[in-house]
Every structure is written in structure tokens, then in C-alpha cells.
Design a binder for these strands. Sequence first.
DNA 1: ATGAAAGCGCTAACAC
DNA 2: GTGTTAGCGCTTTCAT
Lengths: 341, 341
Amino acid sequence: MNRRLSTISRKEVAKLAGVSEATVSRVLNNVGPIKEETRLRVLEAARELGYVPNALAQRFARRKSGNVGVILPFVPKVHLFSTYYFAEILSGIGEAAKACNYDLLLIFREPDSPRDYAKLFRTQKVDACIVLGAQNVAEERAALAELQEEGYPFCLVNQRFDEEGYLTVDADHESGSYTAVQHLIASGFKRIAFLNGPGAFSSSGDRLAGYERALAEAGIPLSEERIFTGNYSRKSGFEAAERMAERIKNKAIDAVFAANDRMAIGLMDGLREHGLEAGKDYGLIGYDDSDSSRIVSPKLSTVSVPFYEMGRRAAMKLLATESEEMENTILPVQLLKRETT
Amino acid sequence: MNRRLSTISRKEVAKLAGVSEATVSRVLNNVGPIKEETRLRVLEAARELGYVPNALAQRFARRKSGNVGVILPFVPKVHLFSTYYFAEILSGIGEAAKACNYDLLLIFREPDSPRDYAKLFRTQKVDACIVLGAQNVAEERAALAELQEEGYPFCLVNQRFDEEGYLTVDADHESGSYTAVQHLIASGFKRIAFLNGPGAFSSSGDRLAGYERALAEAGIPLSEERIFTGNYSRKSGFEAAERMAERIKNKAIDAVFAANDRMAIGLMDGLREHGLEAGKDYGLIGYDDSDSSRIVSPKLSTVSVPFYEMGRRAAMKLLATESEEMENTILPVQLLKRETT
DNA sequence: ATGAAAGCGCTAACAC
DNA sequence: GTGTTAGCGCTTTCAT
């Protein structure tokens, strides 16, 4: 009720409670031994004055920013990349951050600016950070290596750098891919094409491995001619249709496993222009279980990835005091059979 | 290159440059008169030592957090609400924040916790904030009124409280709705139903007004029986199908204007189960131009809203020093005719 | 169990 | 132009 535009200082609380400022601090931070009666008196005074500690001063004195940084990759038209993907991961991080009393600083990478992740720590803007959409390219490796060298806590989500010992939360894309392709094979398909994502993502390697394993297990020879590469955009899926249409018509390909839903949907649309219908003229399975996969028709079979949980785990690893797990976490994924297979 | 785990202090820079710490500050902040030679010497020393100022200390001394807070509404399953919507607005805010040298603090509202927006300011966690998904309900009004009373700078996006003089960036939903319905009328539809969103959003009132204006202008009598309410979820659209199916079959309704794409798509799916096809058995137009609207088939006619720009403008109003525009901004929307009309 | 006081690393007024 | 110095509001030793 006591509303004033000037800041209510700790000093006033101390005076009202008849104690020193240090004691106010102790009470508010629950540190050191405090007589219960004093504690109550201080709490009451603080409540009465509507005192809230100045986070700026606190953080400065503690030399802790209280922030966890989340680095988002630059994506030209945001929604080109899966917004679903980021929204889920971010929410998971948000939940964990809140639980650990951290604030969440959102950092949008820019196309031109260098990836100076370490600067975030040097300037004390963050105490830890989570890198989303990291790629295995020289600049990224250098930026991460610097973080590691200087001992700054960070965690990667959905991307591994196996040779380095980085803290990571990933999903089991090898098995997701394997299961998906196995499902296609079980459905009677034999000439399964693979529309993969860029090699800079570890998931691409994982999915390729799963694809190969499933084929090998079924005794289907691997053919480079059936492996395509897109960039996860709908457009790249659409364009891949041009390269596949004839081959599907002459039965050189009878099904496609795409590395994400967006490409799968672009592909569906592209092939439709060639009179080819998913689930009828060819089998199709996507990846991510994005909103779109449930909305398109025919409904897209896909692999669901626990993005929310991945974000939550990553933040927990960094922020939770008890959880000192430094091993990589790899979460399971799940095949969802719908109408295209 | 000079890499050390301990912080490089301003003192060392001062020593190396042979000046006082204050001069280092002046140079780095471009404040006060400085001899060019000194400036260069300091810059060189800072570069050589790899000095970066401690943002925590800076902000504390300046009594400015350097953060703009973005408050996200609580949405049970995040992607239930339009993630597209938030991703776009957030990116726009991100761009402006960066341009104005602010960091972006993401704040997830929780269902249980009260909306104590003012506390963000009192604790100095933010210097300004942008409220997304605000609703016209008592608790929200109180929280915003408090911000206003205490003079804290904030801006609403896509929501107006007309009686209050809050800083706002909105889109012209009245006109968007009017244009959409006008288009349906021009396409020959006469019994146009309206699936609106919750009344707690100003856009719902705006869209209703636009709907009424278009009907009035065409001399079509308004019928309460054709006005339905959903909650912007796909599910609520799906459920509305139950209430509309019979009426469409007996021609009491020949087209539907839905307040967002998700509901429109849910409705399409629901009506399909009754053998009704959008664009064939009834006209349908959505709102938002979300990814899904382009992906569904038939492709959904819709109204595109400049969410990215709205976010950017909101942040600019709050953060840009020159822009002292306190009037409300209302951005235009655009009708996109696709396959369902 | 509590108070006094020394910082935290910077900014900004004031002096020269 | 540049140096000196007093804070900023808190935490945290060190006394008592």
C-alpha cells in the first residue's frame, strides 16, 4: 500500500525493524543464525514498507548475473526454421530457469556478427548459457572451444560435438531414424529414399546412421542415388520433389524418410504437382511431430522429439546445484504412425 | 590472445595507457572531451588486454538494468496458442532491442503466480517491458494500472485498453475483419458465420465490429445465431464444427470467418468429418497467415498481420531515444485470398 | 545473534 | 583534458 516513486531502501527497513542493515540482508537471504523474533520483525518491516531488494546491486555484490543466456541461431525468415522446435525448447528452459531462480536472457545471433559467446561471460551478462542450433562449422567450434577453455558453463541442445567433452542434451536420432525406416520396410517399402539435413548438424549424421542400419538389417543395399540433402526448409523439400518425381514414377523410389516435417511437407506438395500422393503413390515419414505434421493431409507419419524436456534438462544441468551430471544426456524419441505410411 | 581466467580490470587498462581509471571510462563511453591521442592509447590498451567492462557494475552504477522484459502469457501447451505469433513478435522485439543496445529478458507468466509486473521494475530487473497476450480481465487491468501509476514504461502488443492511455502497438483488426467478410460477400456468400475469440482480447471486439460493418454495408441482417466463440485453439475450432455442421448442410450458413487460423483449421477438420469441404461446401477464411494456413489443404484464405513489425515498433517506442511517439500505433493487415474462398 | 565496515567495478560530480 | 573521489545498494568478513 505504501507506494512511493523513490526506491525503498534497506536502510529504512533496518530502521523500522530496529536492526542493522546487515541483519536485514541476513534475514532476506536466509543466511547465518538469526533470532526468530528478529527475523519476524525484519520480515514484517520489509512487508510493511513494500521493500524489494535491488537485483542490480545484489548481482553486482555477488558477482553473479543471475541470468542464463539462450543463444538462438540466425534464421532468415524465422518461421522458415521450425518455430515449434524453438518454442518448445525455450519453454523447457524457461521452466527450469524459474525453478532455479534464474532469469532468461534471449540472445539472437546475427548473420554478420561473430559468435563471441565468451564475451557474454566476460561482461558478466550471463552465468551460464545454452546454445541452440549450433552447427559443426569452424567458427562455431572455435567459439565453443573458447568457452570450454575459459571454464564457462554452457550446454548444447540437439547437437553433439563428440570429440569434445561438451555438456550436451540430445535426442536419439539414430534410433529415431532407424525406427522410422524400419517401419517403412515393415510396411512393405523397399526402395526408401532419404532426404537428410545439412551435415553441419550432428543429427544428420545420426539419422544417416539409423537409415543405414535399418536398410542393412533388412538386407537392402544402400544406394547413394537415394540420398538427398535439403536445408530443413519447406522450400528445400519442395525442390527435392523435382529430383525424385521421375524416380518415384518408375519405381526406383517407393518411399521417403525426411529429416524433418517441413521438408517432408514441402516434398508432399512438390510431388503432388507431379500427380504423386503421399500414402498412396509413395510412403512418407517426417521428423519432429510439429504442429504442421498433424495438420497436413494426409496426416504425416513422423518421429516425435521431446524438445521441451530437452530444454528443461539442459537448463537443469547448468543451474541446478545438486545435479552435477556431466555426462551427455540422450533422450528417446518416438515413432508416430499416421496416414502417409 | 591475452587470456586469463581472472577478470581484467579497468585499473590495468588505466595503468597500461598511463591514464586514470576515469579517463578509461570516458573513452569507453564516449563521454566528455578527450584528446584524440589519449583516446587511441586507451583503446589500444583495452584491446591489448582484452578488456571488456563489467556490465553488472556498469548497470549498477548507472541504475539501469539495460534489459527490456518481454512478458509471455501462460499457455498450457505452448504450441496450442500460435507459436508463430509469438516467434514473430519476439524476433521483432529482438531486432529493436539489439539496435538500441538493450538485452531481452524473457518472462514466462505462470498460471498460479500473480501478475506482479511492477516488481520487475522495483527490483530493477528491467527498464521497460512489453506485455504480450494481455487480456482484459481484472487482474491484468490492475497490474497494468499499477505500472502506469508508478510511471514505469511499458507497451502492449496486439491488445488495447481504450479507456486507459497505455502505450500500444496493435493491428487494424476491425478493417481486417471487414475486408475478410466483404470478400466473402463479394464471393457470393450471404449467410456468413463468425467464429470469434474470447472477449478478453480487444481484437475480438474489433473483429466483431468489422464483421458487423461488412454485413450492414451489404444489407445483410445480423444474426446472433451465426456468431460463435472459441478460444483460439484448434480444438475449439474442431468443436465448433459440431455446432455448425447441420446449419451448413441446411444452408443456414454458407461461409465462416474465423478469428484465427488454428480455429479455422480445426473447424475444417471437424466439418470434414461431416462430409463438408471448405472452399466447396462452404467458404472459409482464417486470420494470422500462420504457417499452417499455407500448409493445409485446401489452402486457407486468411488475413496476414505484421507481427514482426508490431514487436519491433513496440520495442522502438520504449527504447529508442529519439522516438517519443506516445500515440497508439495501429498497423494495417492484409487479406490473402487462397483456396477456401 | 548482531553490528561495523570494507569492498564489488563502475559512473559522474567536482576540482584543477 | 584529465585526475580525484564519493557514491550506487548490496554481501560478507570480522568483531563483539
